[in-house]
Amino acid sequence: MTSCATPSATSPAARRAPSSSSGGSPGPAPRHGTRRWCRTRDPTAGSSARSRRPARRWPASASWRDRRCPRRWPSCTTRTPGGHSAWTACPRRSSNYHTALARAHRALWDAGVTVDFAHPAHELSRYSLVVAPALFLLSDKAAENLRRYVSGGGTLLVQHANGYVDERLHARLGGYPAAPLREALGIRVEEYRPLRRSERITLSDGTQGTVWSESLRTEGAETLAVYTHGMLTGSPALTRHRFGTGQGWYLSTHLDDADYGALVGRLLKEAGVEPELPGLPAGVEAVTRHASDSRRWHFLINHGTAAVPLPEPAHDLLTAALAHEVPPGGCAVLRGH
């Protein structure tokens, strides 16, 4: 379900404020933008911003529980933050919240990594890697929590069009994303440029972006890739900022699926995150469940059409026999060592 937001009028408070022409004194300067986006030059992005085009709107996810298994959750090292409030805003239909979230989850799933979903304002320190694919609406509290996560040693990937508005849908002043997150990422987004439906833009590392692009300047971050043509030639597209004891990554465009998967794989490697059960090919889902007495079980599902040999034989609780492979479309519950 995707809803769209059109350019809004000034807020009710602004409409009630007395004007100098009516004899009243002007109120104090606003601390937030009264529009979510504007068709012309955007004064909320700072003095160096150029032109701006309209944008559109970006739910959290459900989790599952197996009551017959130990009640302790799988031990996850990655997390994808989201929240109920986030689905009230989204820049454009082709990059809606559900799509962005599913895409990030798919890249991690293909890498064999178990993923949690979290609200960005919740405690994140237990995770080695956090991916934030769609936080267009971001509260000050959540932005500060993400800043604290990176400072404390976490690795964070933030993608384009994040932190543009606060929880009241007020545009951020001084550039994007929200100030605490800008500090962790070491960048400032001054302008966004949606791409035409069939438009592709090449980056200096050979990857290609679609849908979205942004004009940003670095404020301490290292530039890893730049745009190679068009109005944004030479502008950073992928950056990394070493902040505190962690790293904040920022991706300002929508990469092809293969390129995005490669980027996520690179982040997993740098964060020291290993597959749940190393040695399994893509298409085999693996989740490990832990009991309080240190026992553990590996739950495997083969989504492919061919049998998959196991890295090493293991006792399968479903067949009560030693398993050497997982049949096509089949599953296994293996006792861990």
Rank of each mutant, 00 (worst) to 15 (best):
P74S: 11
R71W: 01
R36W: 07
R36Y: 06
R53T: 08
S51L: 14
R16Y: 05
A60P: 04
S47H: 05
R56G: 11
S75A: 15
A14S: 08
R53F: 07
S47P: 03
R16H: 07
W64D: 08
P70T: 14
R72L: 12
G46I: 05
R39Y: 04
S22L: 09
R79D: 06
R52I: 00
P74V: 08
D66G: 01
R52S: 15
R31A: 14
C76G: 03
P18D: 03
A49Q: 11
G46H: 08
R71T: 11
S63W: 05
R31H: 13
T80H: 01
G33E: 02
A60H: 10
P59D: 09
T40I: 00
R15H: 13
A62C: 06
R39C: 09
A55R: 07
R53Q: 15
W73I: 12
G46K: 04
R16E: 12
P43D: 09
R72W: 01
A17G: 08
R72N: 12
A14D: 09
S19W: 02
R57G: 10
A49P: 03
P59T: 13
C38E: 09
S25M: 06
T44N: 13
P26D: 02
S51W: 03
S51K: 07
W64H: 06
S20Y: 01
S19K: 08
P30A: 14
R16Q: 10
S51C: 09
P18K: 04
R15W: 14
P54F: 02
W73Q: 15
T40A: 13
S47N: 04
D42A: 11
P43Y: 07
G27T: 15
D42P: 02
A60K: 03
R79A: 12
R15P: 00
T44A: 12
T44M: 09
T34D: 13
G46R: 05
P26L: 05
G27P: 05
R53I: 01
R67F: 06
D42M: 03
A13P: 00
S11T: 15
A62V: 05
A13F: 02
G33Q: 02
P30W: 03
R68K: 05
S48N: 09
A17L: 08
A60D: 09
H32K: 06
D42Q: 02
S21N: 04
R67N: 11
R36L: 12
T77E: 14
P30D: 10
S22D: 12
T44P: 00
C76L: 01
S51Y: 04
R57C: 08
R53H: 11
W73N: 15
A14V: 10
P70H: 04
P43G: 10
P26W: 00
P59K: 03
T44Q: 09
R35C: 00
R71F: 00
